[in-house]
Write a protein that binds this DNA or RNA. Sequence first.
DNA 1: TCCTCACGGGG
DNA 2: GTGTACGTGAGGA
Length: 772
Amino acid sequence: MRRITGWLFDVYAFGDGVSVWLIDAEGAAHHLHDTLHPTFFVHGAPADLRRVCEWLTRARLPVRLARVERYDVFARRQMVVLQVAVQIPTLFATLVHRVATTFPMLDLFTADLSIAQVYFFERGVFPLAFCEAIVNDANLIVAMNTNDSRWALEYRLPPLRVMVLQMEGEHLNPNHGHRGALEITYEDRTYGISADDPREIIARVRAYLERGDPDLIITRWGDSFILPQLLQLARRYGLALPFNRDARIAPRPRPARSYFSYGRIIFKTMTHTLCGRWHIDLENASLLDYGLDGAFELARLTQQPVQQTVRTSTGTGINAMELATAYAHGYLIPYRKREPEEFKSARALMIADKGGLTYQPIAGIHHDVAELDFGSMYPTIMARFNVSPETIHCECCLDSRAPELGYSICRKQRGVVPDTLAPLIEKRFAYKRAKKDAPDAERKEWYRRLASAHKWLLVTCFGYLGYKNARFGKIEAHEAVTAYGREALLRAKDIVEQRGFRVLHALTDSLWIHKRKTQDVEYTELVAAIERATNLPIELEGIYKWVAFLASRVDAHNAVPHRYFGATRDGELKIRGIELRRRDTPEFIKQAQQAILDELARANTRVELIAALPRVLQIAAEYVDRLRVGQVALRDLAMTYCLSREPSAYQMNTLNAIVARELAGRGVNLQPGEAIRYIITDNAARVSSDRARAAEFWDGAWGYDVARYTELLVRAVETITQPLGLDAPALRAALACEHPNGQPRARLVTPIAPMAFGPLFEFAASKSIQQK
DNA sequence: TCCTCACGGGG
DNA sequence: GTGTACGTGAGGA
């Protein structure tokens, strides 16, 4: 018997059990084994259940059968079900599938959890949990204990050996034609790998993998290009390439797929996840603004393996947490609903119409404006008013009803969704507090990342509630939440106005208000009064020195609700909806807009804002100059767009379509949902293929269209200066730019700037934590 | 002027 | 392994 303490690193099914990897405090990886009997349940007519039993027994499948009672959350009663305990984890999914297809008349429960999830649930552990394993001489786990908790605010992470694998040069898509030598970085040194003989390349990658033995391989385009290419070469020459630390398992890629989400097509490339090691492809990971530290927190919380966590949405994370809640209660978990896509009913459309409240702001610049926000409004509503798919339309609580709609909501039994959310809201709040009191900047940043990871979980949980195919989704629950939200905002608006404030703008969970000569204590009283009236927490988000609500570009008399920017008293900028916030704005334009806003953030009064205009023009002029002398790098000029359809399906001859067709013509297989990057080379060119060039096939010789980029810059500057009285024609005059119409030909400039590397990844904060 | 196309919010 | 619907702006036809 041995005792091993360390962080739970990886879990997967293998042989007749599961493989479990721990990493200890010295950084050593331990490969252990455990048994697991994942269990699913079957419900149906007694005769059908007997047939399943006979079928399973006759086929001599490795299962233990029992008749048990379990609680069905949706039916809200105990049910007699057949329990099928699968003795060999690798057979679990296959068996479930065979039962489901052979006996379509039966209902399956708790049947589509991953083996890793079941293992975590059964052993009371989670990814990166610090635990203790007692193992026998065959490395079989006899007992597993942990004092670590998913709800622990402070925790240590294992010392990870990291290797970086990428192609030299700009991080352009190799699948779209970018080529560069392979680079491997570990222990602070970078090795270029170029050889004429592919066998030589494989041998060197293999040597580095064996020598470095990394826990974590970070790549760019590793999922879709580097790993598949290397593995294919290795296969062709019959060489072993130990990406998997578990040498018994050959790398098994999962194919690319497209799906419809958020009103558009999303494309996911193929993935290469590893066994006994992690692979994170930065080009195929959603680390948003929380980085690896946030991803580790999400893996711990949602009990999904790290490699899955970074490759899936936070919506999946919330779903996983809801499953964990249901599992812990011993509830039957409904098998994945797979209803085919259907057209929205008229009713569903009406509901959508009544989401959050949206006001039309008073356009222009306002001074001394307070913003009040209901923090995490929708999740808090779900938690506080017990809104969950199985608590809505409750028959035992007819006197407890959601506003407007009158749906009854159970008061006696806590719903799965509120039960999942309550501790999550609590933990996020704790991290926000910790961030405020952090002893140093590094620590503050670590808390910020963790709070941010939580934010994304909470934001998506509401959408999931309205998602037809979600296990814990129901449209009426979704409606009830927005109804509570509207009621709260309206009450808040009344209270604010009663106290003599003018509401300048209101949006779902926020109010922008103003009153002459307000004392700060009035805000404190206001917040308290609103909280009393709504039973929801509201905060003074900040007091703006000035804030601009933008007029519509189509109709200058109308303000639009989602485009505004402003500076608070502590000099912080809040920016929504404008170019700076958009994915498809070139980096160069974003930088210019940011620089101008930073300048304006220093102004405190109307007079100071106007006085800042010459400096704003100066900044704009500098950016125009940089464009003219060709000092802007490819990375800053690239236009990035997601394609919504096949290249040939475009009706309009937009730059997107032109570049998509260019790439397709070069043999690139572009999928709807995939992103393309390009440089505008000559926007006015008669031959459309000359107008823009895919970034992967652009070099200095092509130059870029100065006039076009200048025009984009002028528009972005106008967004900021228009409320101050400087519109595009005035800007063009001031900056000596020609008007885009009536312009003969764009002047082309060849850039001279070298293209440097940006930082690869951020890992500093978690490193420092583990050293403490 | 209409249509096509892509994007954001949330904290 | 997948949150929805709508409003906004840019630009081609």
